[in-house]
Nucleic acid binder design. Structure first.
Length: 461
RNA sequence: GGCCCCAUCGUCUAGCGGUUAGGACACCGCCCUUUCACGGCGGUGACGGGGGUUCGAGUCCCCCUGGGGUCGCCA
């Protein structure tokens, strides 16, 4: 049985790197019919917030990732960790350290000045004297003094760290609360986690966690360290790099399946395939196919994927999606024509909404270049004739409107462009947009006439 | 700076000793067309550098360069 987990610390929103990590873990668990656990790493009471936890849950909900069992909160498991700390203390595998933060700082300063690597000097490791007064001690684990800590990373291969590189790191703060590297190891072991897929910023934590596993005699899981996601410039992702928050993508009009598809291809691939449904990802995903190098994200590819998914989204769903962007089509009798005309033109739902508005709402002005280009020659007579003919007929469907245009074209012996350009300007206020017959059918005969007459009115000879 | 990791078109990537180095996004051109998109077709474009190993290296080894990660009583 494969058990994976996603273990964010609730210090803010879920960012896209976190979502990719969550997705990889989720996929691997689902593919193996195993379990995917969501665990909130909130041991640092001073830093976490419930809003952040909620934000993470909301993001999961939006993209459609689920998890098995209840969400685990480390802050509710302190007594478990306490027992293990005591166990290590009793067995002499951990010890109290009475060094104050100030003393530690001073030591680090000195070491830095001497050009040495700053680290705790193990002064209390074998301390047997009388502890200094008034200092609440931390608990440190006895890390091995020599040798190498070696593990097999499922992505990077064999990783080897010398024992001298590690120090006796803190497993319990002076207030008694346990620290990250300690609780992670314990929880992963206790929850039966078999495969840990996480960002490679955790690579250096792994040997520390292995020290904990070994001190406690717990089973060590398989590790997969996924390379980071870089910004479009190929630099480290930071808060300044635009949309980091997963939910921002919803606001920008991206579909969750597009975001997931985009993210899964960042660092992972399956031959030349670009489009993956969630189901296909589950079938094909394997962490052994994850790349070893970092990857930069490029929004234009996300746009492409998003437009792909929009094209293939049923109109009914688009109607619902559009409501978040102020377009309400549920009761519009021509919504099918409208959506069919627009859905393969929009990169985002936001854009789709904008395009819909530009059709549904009367133009507030006319594009300057368009005016110059379209309003010349016989444009006035042509539009007048068009209105005349339209007024005399019933017209509901695009074909009805198209027939009238054709009549005008024939009668005046002109090309489609001669009527199309001024008509487009009248209807949309600009020179780009979907098929005019569709537009007219959507807004209807009366509105069509109204808009054409308005143009005629605005540009009197 | 120490330690660790990484390196194929601008970007995401395929490649797993013998390929005209493939695909996708973006870009450019053509076609379609009442416009703009969509779509179709075509094009520009990459193995960071230097040494080895080998009959033969994008593929294996070493060095350099470049990039990233990490060195907390954060996770």
């Amino acid at each position: 049985m494969v058990v994976t987990r996603f273990a964010p610390s609730p210090t803010g929103y879920l960012h896209i790197g976190g979502l990719r990590t969550a997705l990889f873990n989720w996929l691997w668990a689902r593919k193996n019919k195993g379990k995917f656990i969501l665990r909130i790493e909130d041991t640092d009471l001073a830093r976490n917030s419930q809003e952040a936890t909620k934000a993470i849950l909301d993001a999961f909900d939006w993209v459609g990732l689920d998890y098995d069992g209840e969400v685990a909160y480390q802050s509710q498991r302190f007594d478990i960790y306490k027992k293990y700390i005591q166990k290590l203390l009793d067995e002499g595998k951990a010890y109290y350290c009475y060094m104050t933060p100030e003393e530690l700082d001073a030591l680090r300063q000195e070491q830095m000045q001497r050009g040495e690597r700053p680290r705790y000097d193990r002064r209390y490791r074998d301390f047997t004297g009388t502890p200094p007064e008034g200092v609440k001690p931390v608990v440190r684990i006895k890390a091995p003094l020599e040798g190498d800590i070696v593990f097999e990373d499922g992505i990077k291969g064999t990783i080897s760290i010398k024992a001298e590189e590690l120090d006796d790191f803190i497993i319990a703060r002076s207030d008694g609360t346990p620290t990250y590297n300690f609780v992670v190891a314990i929880d992963d072991a206790l929850m039966g986690v078999t495969d840990v897929i996480r960002g490679d910023d955790h690579l250096y934590n792994t040997p520390k966690q292995i020290i904990v596993y070994e001190a406690l005699g717990l089973k060590i899981p398989r590790f997969y360290h996924v390379p980071m996601i870089l910004n479009e410039q190929g630099k480290k992702l930071s808060k300044r790099d635009g949309a980091m928050d997963v939910m921002e993508y919803k606001k920008m009009g991206y579909l969750p399946e597009a975001l997931l598809n985009f993210l899964v291809r960042l660092g992972w691939s399956h031959g030349d395939q670009e489009i993956f449904s969630l189901q296909e990802m589950v079938e094909l995903f394997d962490p052994k196919d994850i790349n070893k190098s970092a990857s930069a994200y490029n929004l234009s590819k996300l746009d492409w994927l998003n437009s792909h998914y929009i094209k293939n989204t049923p109109n009914e769903r688009l109607v619902g999606l559009l409501e978040d962007f102020g377009v309400f089509l549920a009761n519009h009798d021509k919504k099918e024509i409208l959506l069919d005309a627009l859905k393969d033109r929009a990169k985002t739902i936001k854009e789709l909404a904008q395009m819909a508005k530009e059709i549904l709402e009367e133009p507030t002005g006319y594009d300057e270049k368009g005016v110059k280009k379209a309003l010349k020659g016989e444009w006035r007579e042509i539009l007048q004739l068009f209105v005349q003919k339209l007024q005399a007929k019933e017209a509901h469907l695009p074909v009805d409107f198209h027939a009238i245009i054709e009549e005008v074209v024939k009668e005046k012996e002109i090309g489609f462009g001669k009527i199309g350009q001024p008509l487009r300007l009248a209807l949309l206020g600009k020179m780009a947009g979907p098929d005019l017959s569709d537009v007219m059918a959507i807004i209807g005969k009366e509105e069509t006439i109204k808009r054409v007459q308005k143009l005629l009115e605005n540009f009197k000879a």
